[in-house]
Amino acid sequence: MMAIVIPIAFALVAAAVAMTFWRLLRGPSAPDRILALDTLYVNTIALLVLLGIHLDSPLYFEAALLIALMGFVGTVALCKYLLRGDIIE
């Protein structure tokens, strides 16, 4: 069962990453690109968690947690930059 489901899930998440990349390259505006980056990091977490299940290794959890923390801070900093034209006031 798992041998069938995991490759399908990998394919779906990889397609999601590809579409996010397309939006990242195409834009057209800055918030679109930030939103694409935001989605990209969440998709990466999905990919890492799947890899952890697939390889039966809990090591990927730490990486996923770090990406979640850094990704959120990055999104907030970029939004602040758009809103104020400055990150550190």
Binding site: F10, L12, V13, A16, V17, M19, T20, L35, N43
Partner: peptide, 11 residues
């Protein structure tokens, strides 16, 4: 996986 895919499809 399906929800992740649909979210990016919407994007």
């Amino acid at each position: 996986a399906v929800f992740t895919f649909i979210g990016s499809l919407g994007l």
